[in-house]
Each structure stands twice: as C-alpha cells, then as structure tokens.
C-alpha cells in the first residue's frame, strides 16, 4: 500500500477578521488551522479532539475544500485538492463525504428524506432511472436503520438520531472512500450516540472506508479511532496511536484532557491526579508566542514563550509538540 491515500501537509486556514478601521477595514488573520499535517490510510479512523473553537470543524471542511485553504497541501490519491478548479473538485468529491454535527440543520427542511439521500446520486449518477435511484435509497435507508417506508417524510418529522441516520445515508450512498464526521453524535442523546457510533463502525468495516472522526468526547474517540490527533488553537499538540495516547499521553494538554475524563472506578477516580486547566482558551486572533499552550501549561518555562515546539517522535507511533515532554 504505497499509494498515498490522504496526506495533509502544513495546512493553514486563516480567516480575515475585521479588527478596526472606520472606512477601510483593518483585517487580522484568525488562524483557525495553522500548519496541520497528518496522513490517513484506507480503512483507518483518525480521531481529532480538542476544545470548542480550536479549529476541528475548520480542519474537516478544509480537507474537503468546503473552505479554501490559505496555505498547505491536501493530497487525495496523489492529487492536490487545493489546486483543482471547481469542476475537478466536484468530480473529486464523489469519494469524499461529510456528516455534520447538527443533524436537523444539515438536512434541507423542504426536501423529503428520500430526496435528501438521493441528492448525491442525482449529481454523480445522472443516468440512473428514478426507480433505480429509489431502490438504492431504500436499500441504504434499511442499511442505516431507517424504515424505507419513511422515504417520503420530511426532516422535521424525524428524531435527532433518525436525522443523523439520514445524514449518514446521504454520505454513504455513493460508497465514498473517506467520510469526515464532524461531531456526528454530540447533538444526540447518550443512548443514541452509541447506536450511531456503532453504525458508523459497521459501515466502515463493510465498505472499507476511512474516517476522520472529529469529536470533543475522548471516550467516543477512544472507542472508534485507530489514531488520535490532539488539536489546540489550530495546531497539532500530539498525534499518536490510540493505545499509546491513552496509556502514555506525552503532551501536557493531552494529559489535562485525559485527566478530565471520569474513570468508571470510584477508587481510581478519587485518587487520580486531576490536572485542571486554568484560564480560558486564548483568542486565535492573537495567539501566545512560542508554544500556543504555554498560557495554560503547568510546565511552561521561558523557552516555551520563545520557540515554537516542533512535532517530534516520542516513541513508536507517537509524536508530540512540546519542549518538555520528557521531563
């Protein structure tokens, strides 16, 4: 398997934000994603975790080029998506799909479930007959756990979990190779979350697709991912195999995140070291110099304010961006 599948190199997405100027606006770049690199292999799930506002959704959208990248390369099967024109991009998207966070908002309220699920087919399989399309939609509905006879219903007549199944069916109907899941379950009930996550895992196994699974819930990410990428203020803090990350988190931020996850064992839970993050997330318009995490890092030293830590290997399948991970 030498062919590169998805390679993201030094991806940057900066939004110009108006910070002043009365008539001629003054714009400062908001670095939502700032130099992210990772690889994704076929059939693999990469979890992306981080606090709200750290750029997870922006990263996912930039990979699909739903948001233009400011800089960097998103290489899909050897082609750089950032260099494609509109038409080529539409053609490339056949294999790239996305499932959104808000199940109801991602469905057009004026379309039936059947029409919503069939939309990719109408765009990419224009020769398909109406009956053939309907058959495919019904099969896919059944596959994701929706009754095919609900095909003519409208999104507002479904529950949140069912809406998310419609969204998943729409993303899966073309049998894509990569699906980006942008917090697909965080708007759902806990009991429904498990069902939807398991549905995604089943589909992944059956269709052999790769997932970029964005979430702020470390327990779910642990359940579904093979590797995990920890994001903070648009930068990669740690990128590691799941087992390594959860067993030996190297980055102070990862350690803090993990220590906040409750352990289902009362004795252990009481005795564990809890690393509390103080302060708020700094503004991405004006990030701290050096290491972006230093304003909240318990181990920060003067070098952290001066030099940006590069990602370095911290053992088999584990990379960390911290000056003091060995301390």
């Amino acid at each position: 398997m030498n062919e590169p599948f998805l390679q993201v190199r030094d991806l940057k997405v900066h939004f110009p934000v108006r910070t002043g100027g009365l008539f001629v606006g003054q714009y400062t770049p908001l670095k939502a994603v700032d130099g992210v690199s990772f690889d994704l292999n076929p059939g693999e799930t990469l979890g992306v975790v981080g606090e709200s506002g750290c750029g997870k959704s922006t990263l996912g959208r930039a990979v699909l080029q739903l948001i233009g990248a400011t800089d960097g390369v998103v290489s899909w099967l050897g082609t750089d998506l950032t260099s494609l024109n509109k038409k080529e991009l539409i053609a490339a998207r056949e294999n790239l799909q996305i499932v959104f966070q808000d199940p109801l908002a991602s469905l057009d309220p004026r379309m039936t479930a059947g029409d919503i699920i069939a939309e990719p087919l109408r765009n990419y399989r224009p020769t398909l007959t109406k009956a053939g399309r309907r058959k495919m939609v019904e099969d896919m509905m059944e596959r994701v756990g929706l009754l095919p006879r609900m095909i003519n219903r409208y999104p507002h007549e479904f529950s949140g979990g069912q809406c998310q199944r419609i969204g998943i069916a729409r993303a899966m109907i073309l049998r894509p190779k990569l699906v980006i899941c942008d917090e697909p379950v965080s708007a759902l009930d806990v009991s429904i979350q498990a069902q939807v996550v398991n549905l995604l895992m089943d589909l992944q196994r059956d269709f052999g697709l790769a997932l970029l699974f964005i979430s702020h819930d470390l327990a779910i990410v642990r359940h579904i991912s093979h590797r995990v990428l920890v994001l903070y203020l648009g930068k990669v803090m740690e990128l590691a195999d799941k087992a390594a990350l959860y067993a030996t988190p190297r980055h102070p931020y990862t350690q803090a995140l993990l220590s906040a996850v409750p352990i289902p064992d009362p004795t252990k839970e009481r005795n564990k070291d809890r690393i509390l993050l103080t302060g708020d997330l700094p503004s991405p318009i004006n990030p701290p110099s050096g290491c972006v995490f230093r304003t909240r890092c318990p181990r920060a030293t003067s070098v952290c304010a001066e030099t940006v830590p590069e990602l370095e290997s911290a053992g088999e399948g584990q990379e960390v961006a911290c000056h003091h991970w060995q301390d």
Binding site: L66, I90, R93, L107, P120, R170
Partner: peptide
C-alpha cells in the same frame, strides 16, 4: 451559511443547482 447548503456542496452540487 446553513449546514444543509454546505452538505449540498459536499454532495457534488454546483452553484446553479
């Protein structure tokens, strides 16, 4: 800026459609 418009673009829709 609604997500379903973004979803439509991700589903391969052109601006006109």
């Amino acid at each position: 800026n609604k997500e379903f418009i973004e979803a439509a673009r991700a589903s391969g829709g052109s601006t006109a459609s």
